[in-house]
Design a protein around this nucleic acid. Sequence first.
DNA 1: CTTCTATGGCAAG
DNA 2: TTGCCCTAGAAGC
Length: 269
Amino acid sequence: MPEGHTIHRLAAEHRRVFAGRAIRAESPQGRFAAGARQIDGRVLREADAHGKHLLLGFDDDRWLHVHLGIYGKYAFGPVPAPAPVGAVRLRLTGADAHADLRGPNTCELLDPVDVKALHARLGPDPLRPDADPDLAWRRISRSHTSVAALLMDQSVVAGVGNIYRAEVLFRQGIAPATPGRELTRERWEAVWADLAALMAEGVRAGRIDTVREEHTPEAMGRPPRVDDHGGEVYVYRRSGMPCLVCGTEVRTESLVGRNLFYCPGCQPG
DNA sequence: CTTCTATGGCAAG
DNA sequence: TTGCCCTAGAAGC
């Protein structure tokens, strides 16, 4: 679920459903009881996303900061909301919808100074109009770290997760182990542009699709992919299967505790 | 039942 | 690098 496109969708959904009106807040699970009491009855003024961080601004100038981590989830539904199922950390209820938050890595209240600091420690987000890709380029072009690790570093680029990382490197034909400083500026600009397009499409569709027209299931006469994230991809979780472009077996290896997927044929080096 | 896994990120060593 | 946190569903007995 939660790469940057998911969080931008959640921000839009909160805006659409809750903004401008007082909401009720509670913590059925109890772990955010004190925070929920402080939000309860407030008006939601704005909803913002920076990378994988969701920020909800309330009328007392405080912000709810949510980070889903690897298994956090939101579930929106109608009112009246049914009795909560499972570990619901936070339930927001508005005039005609409710939102249940389960399993977040972070769920806390921040003041404007904290929010500013949060933005400052995050790199440019390809989904934000104010993003400056040169800030990322300055880090990447001086780094001996692999481009695969740099793309997952949220202080370099915000919002890219394991799927977009693997897929953009595949689409750009870049070997994951390539040190940042060996990328040319042109290559980086292509990566950034591709991320911006792929992630914008992810926001629109609500899933991650990265295969080009000529490699879709219809075009290739292959069965559609069925996976949790629901999208058509080139390498993510396709290890052992033939590359859709060159037929080489897709490989996986562990990098900084995460599975990295790539095609040795299309991403030589 | 139990164990494993996941689209994250942090602190400790 | 390892361990730990958060949760739910799938996979393995």
